[in-house]
Design a protein around this nucleic acid. Structure first.
Lengths: 131, 131
DNA sequence: ATGATACTGAAGCATATACTTCAGTATTGT
DNA sequence: ACAATACTGAAGTATATGCTTCAGTATCAT
């Protein structure tokens, strides 16, 4: 069975670079295009309102972030997505989500338990305090 | 029933700002702290190796991205996470993932179907390393 | 061989980021 | 009242980002 985790993680690329790479709409457009299949630099550039040079620079950001891989054959550079990096970015958020879901569950429980009391206190502090 | 989607989405904050906000390790640290419960600005600043002013500036980035909300009571500003923005960021990646998973499924199917043939098609490969 | 194609790479430039320090302003504790 | 606390906001500065243009260098097609 072919797994998309199959490629060697090589280096655990820092989330800094991954999120930074995704922060640009042009780069997200490139990723979006690449999730539909491999593409050349020129194809990636085609819908974008900027020079080829600029696109190549964006591509470098994506490659440095480990989101995209490319190789040249003849004069054409073909690019494709590497799922692992995006997966790491998704996972970081998912991990936090388990926390805040629990937090909201606790808040919900608290509100249910004290529904007869004054709820409109001015602070969210009222719900929980720690440290 | 209290839902964490309950808060009004107000504006659909652009992914640019959300990913940009997450690109900084200090800000991710702040989010991480806030997923464990509300905190004051000073509490957020405590583990970070920078001035309070810097932390307040990071907080502004998180608020502009819709990731964090805060309000002041007396002289204390208390902050908490707003799940919606992070959920949007997670969702964007999840949406792409369905594409590349399908893509890999197709590749897998292709490989299975043509396992007796030459695998080295020219599409992505050549396995040319050149840099 | 010649020209078109597909990049590559260096410079330059305007704006954005990530801080710093310093000088305030309300609140709160004693 | 007075000092400590918890920020707030303006400047200033160094580096990073997101482009541009221009001048190449390899292919590839004819």
């Amino acid at each position: 069975m072919l797994q998309y985790h199959a490629s060697p993680p090589a280096a655990p690329i820092p989330l800094d670079l991954i999120y930074q790479a995704l922060a640009d709409p042009g780069r997200r457009g490139m990723v979006e295009r690449l999730t539909r299949g491999p593409a050349t630099v020129t194809q990636l550039a085609e819908p974008l309102p900027m020079s080829l040079s600029a696109v190549v620079q964006h591509l470098k950001v994506l490659e440095d972030a480990g989101i995209v891989r490319s190789q040249k054959t003849g004069r054409v550079r073909t690019c494709q997505v590497i799922p692992a990096a995006l997966h790491a970015a998704e996972q970081w958020i998912a991990d936090r989500r388990t926390f805040w879901e629990r937090q909201y569950d606790q808040l919900e429980a608290y509100l249910n338990a004290s529904s007869s009391e004054a709820i409109g206190n001015q602070e969210m502090n009222g719900a929980k305090d720690q440290e």
